[in-house]
Each structure stands twice: as structure tokens, then as C-alpha cells.
Simulated scan of single mutants.
Amino acid sequence: MDDPRRSLAACSAAFGGSAPGAAGRAQALVADAVTQAWQGNDDAALATLDRAVDVAPISDAFLNRALLKLRRGDDAGAVADLDRTVRRAPKDARGYYYRSEVLSRLGKTARAKADAARAAALDADSPR
């Protein structure tokens, strides 16, 4: 959702429903939600992400739902979804990064610094 290029091709590649079963259906819903958000329809995007989470609680659904909640000013809801993101994808820097940003804004400096350090360590380990 937070992709300045807003590349539909990249979105389709990331969430194209390649996983079998419920996870694949949830990925397809995440792709739909990201497209809806890019088109300015945040209400529809949030509803679609809620459906994705109901189908299969995948980390990308929680991450993108957190980003929408942040956009709407729902910091507590965003942190809850980012907690779920990190639990489901502990080696993905994005959950830690966004959670560190929100926690910092909420004045939870120690947790924010720990998440920022974890995100940096994971990002440094990721292939480029």
C-alpha cells in the first residue's frame, strides 16, 4: 500500500494468489485492497483487508490493514495489526519498521528503538 510507484504489476506479482488454498485467496484480496486504496477508496480497501484476514491471517493483510489504520489516525489499531504482522513474519523488516514509527510517535521510545534496530538488522540481511 505504501508504494510510491503504485505499480499494479509489482502488486500482482507480490499478491497474485500464487499460494494454494486460503492463503492464495487472501493474497488476491490483499491485491484488490491495495488497488482500492491507490484509487482513494480506503473504506472498500479496509473492508477487503478484513475479509482477507478472515480467509487466512497472512502477514501482508495485517501489514496493509495497519497502514490504512495509520492513514486514518488509528494508531492503537495499527500497532495491534503490526504486532500480528511481526508474529506471522518475524524475518520481514517492514512490520518492525512501521511499528517503530508508530511507537515513537506514541512516546514508547525504548520499544520503538528496539523495533528500529531489528528492522535495520533484517533489512541489512535481505538480498538486494
Rank of each mutant, 00 (worst) to 15 (best):
D54F: 04
D54R: 13
V55M: 03
A56I: 05
I58A: 00
S59I: 00
S59C: 00
S59H: 02
D60H: 04
A61R: 03
A61V: 04
F62M: 06
L63T: 02
R65H: 08
L67V: 12
L68W: 05
L68Q: 05
L68F: 05
K69H: 06
K69M: 10
K69W: 04
L70W: 02
R71Q: 13
R71I: 01
G73A: 12
G73L: 07
D74Y: 12
D74I: 07
D75K: 12
G77F: 11
A78D: 08
L82Y: 12
L82H: 13
D83I: 08
R84D: 12
R84T: 06
T85W: 05
T85H: 14
V86L: 12
R88Q: 13
R88A: 15
A89E: 07
A89C: 11
A89P: 07
A89K: 04
A89S: 14
P90E: 10
P90M: 12
D92N: 13
R94L: 08
G95T: 04
Y96Q: 08
Y96I: 09
Y96C: 04
Y97A: 14
Y97M: 08
Y98P: 00
Y98D: 01
R99D: 03
R99K: 06
S100T: 01
S100H: 01
E101H: 09
V102I: 14
L103V: 11
R105F: 00
L106D: 11
L106S: 14
G107R: 06
K108S: 13
T109K: 12
T109S: 10
A110Q: 13
A112I: 09
A112S: 15
A112R: 11
A114V: 07
A114N: 09
A114I: 10
D115S: 10
D115W: 01
D115C: 09
A116V: 06
A116W: 04
A117N: 10
R118Y: 04
R118T: 15
R118A: 15
A120W: 03
A121Q: 14
L122N: 11
D123Y: 05
A124E: 14
D125A: 15
S126V: 10
P127V: 11
